[in-house]
Write a protein that binds this DNA or RNA. Structure first.
Length: 457
RNA sequence: GGCGACAUCGCCAAGUGGUAAGGCAAAGGUCUGCAAAAUCUUUAUCCCCGGUUCGAAUCCGGGUGUCGCCUCCA
């Protein structure tokens, strides 16, 4: 198994710290709003990493944090005129609901920042004691100049950051790249008591504390979106290593960004999509296929045409499941040599830094082969491999659901035909449609607006 | 200004030195009352220019173009 390690900027052989076990941490949501389709890529991808390791037989512990105290929550609380804690509750619920709708298996632990304030204070104190942190007027900063490896992950040099056009001027900071560990509370803001007065933790500290508490001082994989490399993960590394002298994580994985029709998604460009809205039109497997058909480290362009293609591609598999009358198919036997070989190829693709696009092509090969050979084992193979990517989690439901979705369309279609018959004064057919629908419990009602219908029970 | 990524068939996308996977779309054949599905067949020399090599989409140099990070962001 090879993984591209951002820290080394190349693929490395994956060797778990403890044989047979994977300890993984991926940055979760800041719960100030519904998460967007770009977030969905990261959440989905790390879901696949987790599932795939489980498929390989690893005992996986997966932690995903929830940032429930942060500037954006405070801002949102002012906009919605709700306390920060209510904002957090609201969007945590939405996060859980939407990730479930995406077919994402919940992480083993979903720790919240506000549950770890004391531990964060302890970490900051330790950094202070070791000379990596300093306090100015109730704020505490991490001194990047004192941590010589700073910039190791992102490949940035402290001096270049200084001359960069966009580093903010903060007179309290010794160095412009120094980052906040503890932020002094402004009036009306949520705050906690600390040795430096009332305030709240800076963003990067929570991940260090929660990951180490739940996974140990050094764990296997730390993941997140590309944009988190700098400064977030860089700052995590600085705090973690400064405090213990040990690496925080062995492998750093980052997924590429999502663009909307070639442009960065942003609210100001008016091309901002919440996952929740996308899910109204496209099912989770379509979205999953869309993301997994491209390598996770590449940028991906989001547009509806591609989603529609993805849906068609996924439907091909369900067409097959429908035809073979899943699940009424006989039980599986040993895979034969050809089937074992396909499985091997699939695994080889995934083992090469999660080449999901290639892996998916083998799913299509299996489908084609089944069409040819009608060997039911191929269906099992297809499902087994597909599930390691999160597909085919509930085949029966989906076959069923498609029918439900479509029945409403069918009624509308019949109403249209009846309208045409009425226009042509072919009353016998128009009436027959009305009568036949009533027979199966659907009552039509003509109004001046058009034709309504309702179910009669 | 600094750093980095990418450019492969109409569209999406694998492929990182050995002669271009897969999906969608399209065309034609089989099947079918007609359609749909299925099935068979067809469709690329890889942005441009140089170089290295027996051999390059794959390596090197130079262009051009697109995007990202350097500020909260997955």
């Amino acid at each position: 198994m090879k993984i591209f390690n951002t820290m080394k900027k190349r693929k490395e052989e994956f060797v778990p710290i403890e044989a047979g076990k994977l300890k993984m941490y991926a940055c979760g949501p800041t719960v100030y709003n519904y998460f967007h389709i770009g977030n969905a890529r990261a959440f989905l991808f790390f879901d696949v990493v987790r599932r795939y390791f489980e498929f390989l037989g690893y005992d996986v512990t997966y932690v995903q944090n929830i940032t429930d105290i942060e500037d954006k929550l405070i801002k949102q609380s002012q906009e919605e005129k709700l306390p920060v804690s209510k904002i957090a509750e609201k969007y945590i619920k939405a996060f859980l609901k939407d990730t479930k709708a995406l077919g994402i298996k919940p992480a083993d632990h979903l720790p919240r920042a506000t549950e770890y304030i004391n531990e964060m204070i302890k970490l900051i104190q330790k950094l202070e004691k070791k000379g990596f942190a300093y306090q100015v007027d109730g704020d505490v900063y991490f001194s990047v100049s004192d941590f010589k490896e700073y910039g190791k992950l992102s490949g940035k040099k402290i001096d270049e950051l200084k001359t960069g056009a966009r580093v903010d001027e903060n007179k309290n900071k010794k160095h412009p790249a120094d980052f906040t560990l503890w932020k002094k509370a402004k009036p009306q803001e949520p705050n906690w008591e600390s040795p430096w007065g009332k305030g709240r933790p800076g963003w990067h500290t929570e991940c260090v504390v929660m990951s180490r508490t739940l996974l140990g001082e050094t764990f296997d994989i730390h993941g997140g979106g590309n944009d988190l490399i700098f400064p977030h993960h860089e700052n995590e590394i600085a705090q973690a290593q400064a405090s213990t002298g040990k690496a925080l994580a062995k492998y750093w994985m980052h997924n590429g960004y999502l663009n909307i029709e070639g442009e960065k998604m942003s609210k100001s460009l008016n091309n901002f999509f919440t996952t929740r809205d996308i899910l109204k039109k496209y099912d989770q497997e379509t979205i999953r296929f869309f993301f997994l058909s491209k390598h996770y480290r590449s940028p991906i362009d989001f547009n509806e045409d591609i989603l529609i293609e993805s849906r068609k591609a996924v439907n091909g598999f369900y067409q097959l499941f429908k035809e073979v009358d899943y699940p009424h198919i006989s039980s599986k036997h040993e895979y034969d040599e050809q089937q074992k070989d396909l499985k091997k190829k699939f695994i080889a693709a995934m083992d090469d830094d999660f080449n999901t696009a290639k892996a998916i092509s083998y799913l299509f090969e299996i489908l084609k082969l089944y069409r040819k050979l009608k060997d039911v084992n191929l269906i099992y193979l297809l499902i087994e491999l597909g599930q390691s990517l999160g597909f085919f989690q509930n085949i029966e439901d989906r076959l069923q659901k498609n029918l439900n979705d479509i029945s409403e369309e069918l009624v509308k279609l019949l109403i249209d035909y009846r309208k045409q018959f009425k226009r042509e004064k072919r009353w016998e057919w128009a009436d027959r449609i009305r009568a036949d629908l009533k027979e199966i419990g659907i009552q039509l009602r003509d109004t001046s607006e058009g034709t309504d219908w309702e179910l009669q029970e």
